[in-house]
Design a protein around this nucleic acid. Structure first.
Lengths: 224, 224
DNA sequence: GCCGAACCGTAACGTACGGTACGGTTTGAT
DNA sequence: ATCAAACCGTACCGTACGTTACGGTTCGGC
């Protein structure tokens, strides 16, 4: 979950409201969508009437929770002028590692679960919100890096969106769906760093510029 | 969702029970986890008492539904003896296309949503069942192909599970998570075929054997 | 201090649903 | 035909929960 500056409401909440949203987050991690307004009110020492006054309804409270959580995740900017092959790879690996940390974090798992379980319902916008703060926010942040890399002749692609989607697939592979379905998948920091590096190397191999000397290509056997 | 021969119970149900499970499937597609036992009983012209007698409880009914749906999906075997570069690529692309058809199908989406929304609950095994019939079943079927390809020197990898997971990521990319969260993503037959071919070419490029002549490599610019 | 708004803890309302019970009908075996 | 089991449609039970209401307390502005 990543902050999305264009539509975030995080700046509009009081500290008290944010404390309530932290309670919702904790409860979502503990019991998922089984969280009741009564449970939130009790744990947050807040009346249900106030909850409804502040957030509208249950869906509104959940939406606010997603946005609040997303506002806590910040991604570093990058310097376009100093980008070279080494810093491109480092930057991409950093994005990849951050994404893996997000999707394997218990909060993101809980929020995605809730949003997915509401996605069939006609009135819920949770799925849109999670996508906007998740996959699409990541794309928005990474795209300038990809473009800068292409401008500098470090990578090459016909369609930047396709290139991003492929990198996305190389990063997450089967991790997110397994975690969402309850699989126990070890994603400690070492695994995350290694996976991010692997994904980045694979991505750069697939999208190496054609003019690049063939013998300087990474040895593909090291990619597994 | 793919049949898993070792634990399937599909063969144990009567035609009447299968008809009921089809009703559950249809309702899951229409209204997701909001499906009630009363709605199932009414649509299937079946009493709730009978539902409980046949399937135990609500979770049992949902589990049976996953297994029933999975039993309907069959994957063709492959001939190990005649495998060459062309047929390896064709075979992998076929697996990839099948997988994309499955995950973009409304039934699979509905079943994954239900399983994910239950995955936090302590007592539900839906997540395990869906994984077993999904990602893990695909792996089980594809692994012999990857191994045969490696034996024939058509591809090379240090760790077959890692190779499979990367291929999995290249196939699905961001498709499944977007569909689960309610995004409208065009996955018509043409898109599926193209995506499967792209993923296969990318996979084969990443895992080409080292001894293979460099100039015969696919042009990576065509991969986007 | 006064006063209205905001908020808390609790009660109440209306609806919903998983699961069980019941009377009657149907089915299958003898 | 008889009889027990299986099944259907409906009622019932107990619990649950989103949402609103209420009396009292706290807070903030004047």
């Amino acid at each position: 979950m990543i902050a999305d500056e264009t539509t975030d409401r995080a700046g509009e909440w009081t500290e008290r409201q944010k404390a309530v949203l932290d309670v919702v987050l904790a409860l979502l991690v503990e019991i998922g969508d089984a969280v009741t307004m009564t449970a939130v009110a009790r744990r947050a020492s807040c009346s249900k009437e106030t909850l409804y006054k502040w957030f509208g309804d249950r869906d509104g409270l959940l939406s606010a929770t997603v946005q609040w959580q997303a506002s806590k995740v910040h991604v570093a900017a990058f310097d376009r002028n100093t980008l070279d092959a080494g810093s491109l790879e480092a930057r991409l690996a950093e994005y990849a590692a951050n994404w893996l940390r997000v999707i394997s974090g218990e909060r993101s798992i809980a929020l995605n679960r809730v949003a997915i379980s509401h996605a069939g319902a006609a009135r819920s916008t949770l799925g849109d919100i999670v996508l906007r703060h998740g996959r699409f926010a990541l794309g928005k942040r990474m795209m300038p890096v990809l473009e800068a890399g292409a401008e500098k002749g470090l990578i090459a692609f016909d369609d930047r969106e396709e290139a991003f989607r492929t990198f996305f697939g190389l990063i997450a592979r089967d991790v997110q769906i397994r975690l969402l379905l309850g699989d126990t998948l070890a994603m400690d920091e070492a695994a995350i760093i290694a996976d991010a590096a692997r994904a980045t190397r694979q991505f750069l191999a697939l999208y190496a510029p054609e003019a690049r000397p063939v013998q300087t290509r990474p040895r593909l056997r090291t990619l597994t």
